[in-house]
Write a protein that binds this DNA or RNA. Sequence first.
DNA 1: CCTTGACTTGAAGTCGACTTCAACTTCTAG
DNA 2: CTAGAAGTTGAAGTCGACTTCAAGTCAAGG
Lengths: 139, 139
Amino acid sequence: MDISEVSKQTGIPSSALRYYEQKGLITSVREKGERRRYAPTVLDQLALIALGQAAGLALDEIRSMLSPYGPPNIDRQLLAAKADEIDALIKRLRAMSSGLRHAAACPAPSHVECPSFQKLLKAAATGALEKRWGKKICC
Amino acid sequence: MDISEVSKQTGIPSSALRYYEQKGLITSVREKGERRRYAPTVLDQLALIALGQAAGLALDEIRSMLSPYGPPNIDRQLLAAKADEIDALIKRLRAMSSGLRHAAACPAPSHVECPSFQKLLKAAATGALEKRWGKKICC
DNA sequence: CCTTGACTTGAAGTCGACTTCAACTTCTAG
DNA sequence: CTAGAAGTTGAAGTCGACTTCAAGTCAAGG
């Protein structure tokens, strides 16, 4: 497959594909000429990359899971750790959501007077959300 | 209060405080000389900023909620919308977490052979997570 | 043969929320 | 009075994941 084919099938722009290759996440061959050709397995790898990104992994972390050839060697510990991170994030997000929802519905003339809102404020101020909620997951 | 006082009380570095002021999120006065002095209400405003950030609002969005003086005028619609966004995110995250957890525990020799993992891959590949989960919330 | 469109490269730009820097001014304690 | 700590400014740097650009190469169709 050539780059545009892969791009079409995955929806990933060719610029991103080149970037992934440059970063060592995928590989290509140059059969004739200087144009890239991809093995069909690249699609699986790209799916794995998408998954890793969705899980909040950085590209560098994902690379370590993609062995050059053969099946990916997945770091189960890392996955479990990421799952824990995500769960923690979910917990905080649930609090945020209900807090926001209350604030949106709160009939108090000014939110400064609303106890729930005060609580929310305090939670946010207290760094209950750590440093902008973790920074590792997300972004 | 001077800038270092505010910084100490909130944990927000003075550089960030100047940045917020430059962005129009907070205000200060220069009583004598050119040094900033902050009214105590700035603490509330900073708490609100922290809250907004935790909710995934951009600083520019937060600014519109902080009226120059007096109580903040909160956009209830925006809050509700953000809560919806967060709920959607939570939904996706829950799927990710359980998927990851399964993948971490999965006894299959290679994840390529594990149906759950395949499902995860497909979900990630299908853009079920939109463009890197929304981009508005988070970051 | 020649045009056109797809591909190649390395380098530079983007986004948001800050941080860091250099150069300077000002406040405070001794 | 003076040293040094703390404050001021605008400009530039940072991070990650890309995108965009300029300039050049190449392959297929007419």
